[in-house]
């Protein structure tokens, strides 16, 4: 799970490759987090205790979500019926505190980012739940681990149209939830145009390190859902599965980098349509699964 920030590195490296630059080192995100952990902190006078509490809470909920998510050859340490709902809501809890912390600073820019974040996530929520319902319906189980182990090559053979639709839907959710292009541009130069990055502008020091790490974990979590579907190899031995899974994650990151280099950001009022299309794809998948 320590590999999560590496994804950011791969994405940035791919982008740099397409832009013809050398780009930052692969491990840049680790250096950033390490350096931030070693620094002091500056707080805005407008903020309250909430602002200081929220980074720890955000990271805590992300790590907790990690406990529920199976990956590679590993079962998740914690699995019970219904944990896929809890998983989605843990991400929600983190979002709630990111948004309130942003509002705590009283900055109009951060308010704007917060407002957009809640809009897009409110729209992404139905798409995510439809996908989860389709996965649950496909495997007749209600826990992430059970779903993960229920998806094997046999299932792919008979239900690949539904699964492909699901992967497409989840990929859109993945881009939207992690604030990547075409929904949000993580390295835009103007605060006005950011969504996630502007919300965390005022965090500093270890707090910011927590937030950065939490963001990369979120990338990892939602990514491993997609890769988990795409690499339907179960019971082929721990190491093989693990390696394939890691490889899949790496490829996913490259894909994100490619999307980011080749597409522009969407015109803001069109983003709901983009996310809505994910919901439609997921609904179709569900239709195929149920029929």
């Amino acid at each position: 799970m320590l590999l999560a920030p590496l994804l950011l590195g791969i994405i940035n490296k791919t982008k740099a490759f397409y832009a013809g630059r050398t780009g930052q080192p692969l491990l840049q995100a680790y250096w950033d987090i390490g350096k931030l952990l070693g620094k002091g902190a500056v707080y805005s006078r407008s903020t309250t205790l909430l602002f200081r509490l929220s980074p720890s809470l955000i990271l805590a909920s992300m790590i907790t979500a990690l406990f529920l998510m199976p990956s590679g050859g590993l079962l998740s340490p914690l699995a019970f019926s219904g944990d896929l709902i809890l998983f989605a809501y843990l991400l929600g809890l983190a979002r709630f505190f990111t948004v309130t912390a942003a509002l705590d600073t009283g900055s109009a820019f951060e308010g704007m980012g917060a407002s957009r974040e809640v809009l897009f996530s409110a729209l992404a929520e139905p798409a995510l739940f439809l996908s989860l319902a389709a996965l649950a319906g496909l495997t007749h189980t209600y826990s992430l681990s059970a779903v993960y182990f229920g998806l094997n090559i046999e299932v792919w053979k008979t239900a690949f149209p539904a699964l492909l639709l699901l992967v497409a839907a989840l990929f859109v959710v993945f881009l939207a939830e992690n604030s990547r292009i075409p929904v949000d541009d993580p390295n835009t130069h103007l605060e006005l145009t950011m969504i996630h990055e502007v919300m965390v502008l005022d965090h500093s020091g270890p707090d910011f390190a927590f937030i950065q790490y939490a963001a990369s974990l979120k990338l990892w979590l939602l990514g491993s859902m997609i890769v988990g579907i795409l690499v339907p190899l179960r019971g082929a031995g721990f190491w093989l599965e693990e390696i394939l899974f890691r490889l899949g994650m790496g490829l996913l990151a490259v894909l994100v980098g490619y999307v980011e280099s080749s597409r522009a950001r969407l015109f803001l009022p069109r983003v709901p349509k983009f996310i809505g299309s994910a919901a439609v794809l997921a609904a179709l998948a569900l239709l195929l699964v149920l029929r």
């Binding site: 902190a41 707080y43 990271l59 805590a60 820019f109 020091g205």
Partner: peptide, 27 residues
């Protein structure tokens, strides 16, 4: 548990370092 752990870690990290108050970054 995680929250308490992280909160303590953060407290530990920040103790002895400079913690300042400033205005919100107004871009």
């Amino acid at each position: 548990l995680l929250f308490c752990g992280l909160w303590l870690l953060r407290k530990n990290l920040l103790s002895g370092r400079s913690v300042e108050l400033a205005a919100t970054w107004g871009c």
